[in-house]
Computed example of a mutant assay.
Amino acid sequence: MSAISAYLDPLALPIYQGRDQSFALEISRSDIEADAGQIDGIAFCMKQHGAMPDADAVIRKKLGAGITLLADSDPEKVFFCVDLTAAETAALSVLIAYPWDVSILDSEGKLRPVDGLAGKTVVLPRVGYTAG
């Protein structure tokens, strides 16, 4: 499984088609508290285009189902990992820029996008070696 620290360049998450992928991300506690959200309400969404409703997203993850909390002891940030399976990445079209974002569940039960945790991912073809 490859790991990419997305917070270094949140606008570019490269994904290789047909491979397991993990992305380490961080969210500030002030972003969570500003929306009266909870850490357990973190969600990741990837769509074919930005106008697509969340319900129709090509990939959706939430804490405990594709999102793992990595560290919760920092007083200013929460670190978490988004895991994509090989089956999920195999279903994505190559060389397409899919918009993605991270949201938190607010006190009203609505998902609110987190500023600075959004961008695009480009799906790259799987280049492999077959022993013969």
Results as ranks from 00 to 15, higher is better:
128 G>A: 12
2 S>G: 06
86 A>S: 14
132 G>I: 09
89 T>D: 01
8 L>R: 12
64 G>C: 06
114 V>F: 04
74 D>I: 02
92 L>R: 08
90 A>R: 13
101 D>E: 14
60 R>Q: 14
14 P>N: 01
109 G>K: 03
8 L>W: 08
99 P>K: 08
32 I>S: 02
57 A>D: 03
41 G>L: 00
17 Q>P: 00
95 L>S: 13
124 L>Y: 14
122 V>I: 15
94 V>N: 05
4 I>E: 08
47 K>E: 02
102 V>W: 00
98 Y>N: 09
79 F>D: 01
103 S>G: 11
37 G>V: 05
24 A>R: 09
114 V>E: 03
72 D>K: 08
16 Y>S: 13
69 L>C: 11
60 R>G: 06
22 S>Y: 02
86 A>L: 04
82 V>Q: 07
16 Y>G: 07
15 I>M: 11
38 Q>N: 11
95 L>K: 10
19 R>E: 12
11 L>Y: 13
105 L>S: 04
74 D>Q: 05
49 H>K: 13
93 S>Y: 06
83 D>N: 11
91 A>K: 10
113 P>V: 01
32 I>R: 04
50 G>H: 10
64 G>K: 08
127 V>M: 13
99 P>H: 07
49 H>A: 13
16 Y>N: 10
57 A>S: 12
36 A>F: 14
112 R>Y: 04
117 L>M: 12
80 F>S: 04
59 I>L: 10
107 S>K: 11
3 A>I: 13
13 L>C: 02
109 G>E: 04
1 M>K: 07
14 P>G: 07
10 P>G: 10
34 A>K: 08
51 A>M: 12
52 M>H: 01
